[in-house]
Amino acid sequence: MRRIALAAVAASGLTVMLAGTALSDETDWGAYEVGDKRSGYTYAATETRSIQDDDFENPAMLWVDTGQELWDTVEGEAGKACASCHDDAAVSMAEVGAIYPVYYEPRGKLINIEQRINLCRTENMKAKAWKWESRELLSMTAFVRNQARGRPVAVKIDGPAAPFYEKGKEFYYQRRGQLDMACKNCHEDNAGNMIRANLLSQGQSNGFPTYRLKWQKVGSLHRRFRGCNSQVRATPYKAGSDEYVNLELFLADRGRGLPVETPAVRN
């Protein structure tokens, strides 16, 4: 802990104040807490939580609505909509949000939901892939993952996914950037402690894509990774890179059992 603080001061950009345990609360977090795993929801301010609690107060639902519309919209040379093959998303996509990323044989690597959507678009619909972080891709990803809301995260990490899981794990524990910090230094060692004025969470991924107050919109998990990596003064990887998809699998497993919350609301 001491080392982190010193590194941060030396780099002088980010003032890291690692105070003593900020919360010794006995709150019953219900489904948001599974064993020692706690959703980011449990670290959010009361007001932020209440925005997430009501689908008519949660602005991220605007993206989910857009996703629903796009689901039924015919696009591309094949003359298909998502619904042409997958019909009712509530049935066909019921599990997807809980089990992705998955190993994808034709590519010999993992793919996440965003990539699965774009594969469907380019290969089955003969439509253009959506850009990462575009309104369309965020909306569809939020819509698809929202179908699994409440289901416990249950990714597959054995079989062909195993080596990619290991790479994701390695990434998580690898120190990087000028501040020489790994994901673990904040989200394992200091979850529940203050970093300046903010409470560090366990960095769980079960609510993504999520509406961040800072962003004032919905954003992807990979956008968050890029932000974290920049904060430790490391060069972020590209959204959709193998590194981030592998990390996504490791994080999903780390939060195994937490319910899918998409679309969550976070600071």
Partner: peptide
Amino acid sequence: VTIGGCGG
């Protein structure tokens, strides 16, 4: 209004 922390 709290300022700062981990922007990301």
